[in-house]
Each structure stands twice: as structure tokens, then as C-alpha cells.
């Protein structure tokens, strides 16, 4: 992907953190570095490949993460929409903001699993991450990859696997492989780059 080549650098605080000093880079080190990062803002492009469709659907917008539990996704194209996860509550607002849906992640374990794949990673919350997934780490600080396989059978019915790639404390891409063969690829670029 061309966007994957545009590797963004630095969270606001973590940018000052010289990751290279850490001699042995593994999952615990990544999680530790992530846990120290307080906030992050980036742009994303998401492509959905679905069996019911003859062509992929593309959308784009911005992402905001605030430690430890707030995640906000503002889709700007093709239609404005805002998704906010705060604690256990997930809210989806239409661009008009007249209609919004709020749900509890505990009520929808599948949605909860998808949210935590990104949020727990950003929060450096290894315990939560491993509660939902079997985590396989590979790579180093300059280019790492997490391969997540759902533990819960119900989640497994929807999601086959999630692959998160990144460098330092930044996520570059999230690729979700769904059980029905559909695929979702989100590439993330630091804002302003």
C-alpha cells in the first residue's frame, strides 16, 4: 500500500521517547511504550471488501485516541459519521447528528472484541488484549506486527483474525479478516503528514 510507505512518526508525548534504547523489543516492551502514550491523532483510509458487493467500499476520516479508554473515529468521506467509544459505551452519530445509536460493548461481545483490538493495543493493555485474543508478536520497534486470533467462539463466528502492523507507538494498518470471507483494511497516517 502506498500509504503504508508513509510511515508517520511520534505520538504527542511518546515522540520524545527514544524507543531504540530498549534493547529487546517484544510484546511487553511495545505494550509498555503504548501505555505511556497519552493521546494520538491520525487520519485513516478504510477499504471494505464484501461478498455482497462487486467492488470495495472506501471511506476516510480522522482518528483520535485519548488514554486510557476513549477512541473517536470521524468519517468524513463519503458521508460524515462519528463513532465514539468511551469506556463501555459506543455511540454512532450520523453527520446530521440527529440520530445516534448508543450501545454497551458488554451487550455486543463481537463489537467489543473489534473495539478492543485497537483500543487495548493503543492503551498498552496486554491483559485485555489477551483476554479477547491469542496474540502473536513479530518484528521490532521499526516495524512490528500483531496477529490476533479471537478466543471467544461467538467472536470467532464473525472475525477470523485481525492483523495490526505498526512502528514505535504508531499503528499503520489494521486488517480484519471476517469469517464470511469479507475483509476490512484500514490504513492510518499521522495527521498532517
Amino acid at each position: 500500500m502506498l500509504i503504508a510507505a508513509l510511515l508517520a512518526l511520534g505520538g504527542e508525548l511518546a515522540a520524545a521517547q527514544p524507543a531504540a534504547v530498549v534493547p529487546q523489543w517484544g510484546l511487553p516492551a511495545l505494550m509498555k511504550a503504548m501505555a505511556e502514550m497519552r493521546a494520538q491523532t491520525a487520519n485513516f483510509v478504510e477499504r471494505k471488501y464484501m461478498s455482497v458487493l462487486t467492488q470495495p467500499l472506501e471511506s476516510s476520516g480522522s482518528l483520535v485516541y485519548l488514554a486510557p479508554a476513549k477512541l473517536q473515529k470521524d468519517t468524513l468521506q463519503p458521508k460524515p459519521q462519528r463513532l465514539v467509544v468511551e469506556g463501555d459505551r459506543l455511540t454512532i452519530e450520523d453527520g446530521s447528528q440527529e440520530r445516534s445509536r448508543t450501545l454497551s460493548l458488554a451487550d455486543y461481545p463481537q463489537i467489543g472484541a473489534i473495539v478492543e483490538s485497537i483500543r487495548a493495543t493503543l492503551a498498552g493493555d496486554q491483559k485485555t488484549l489477551e483476554q479477547f485474543y491469542t496474540v502473536a508478536f513479530s518484528g521490532d520497534a521499526a516495524r512490528w506486527q500483531l496477529a490476533l486470533t479471537p478466543r471467544d467462539r461467538k467472536v470467532e463466528e464473525i472475525i477470523k483474525s485481525i492483523r495490526i502492523t505498526g512502528h514505535d507507538v504508531l499503528i499503520d494498518a489494521v486488517e480484519t479478516q471476517e469469517a464470511n470471507g469479507d475483509r476490512d483494511v484500514m490504513t492510518i497516517v499521522k495527521e498532517g503528514k
Binding site: L57, E58, K73, P78, I92, R101, I111
Partner: peptide, 16 residues
């Protein structure tokens, strides 16, 4: 189609 492209896709995908 709009819903499928959005974050509410989960809500409609199975029932579509």
C-alpha cells in the same frame, strides 16, 4: 450501501 461503508455496517451486514 452507505450503512455498509460506515461503522454501523455491523448492524446491517447480517440482515441485508
Amino acid at each position: 450501501l452507505q450503512l455498509l461503508g460506515s461503522d454501523a455496517a455491523m448492524l446491517v451486514k447480517r440482515t441485508l
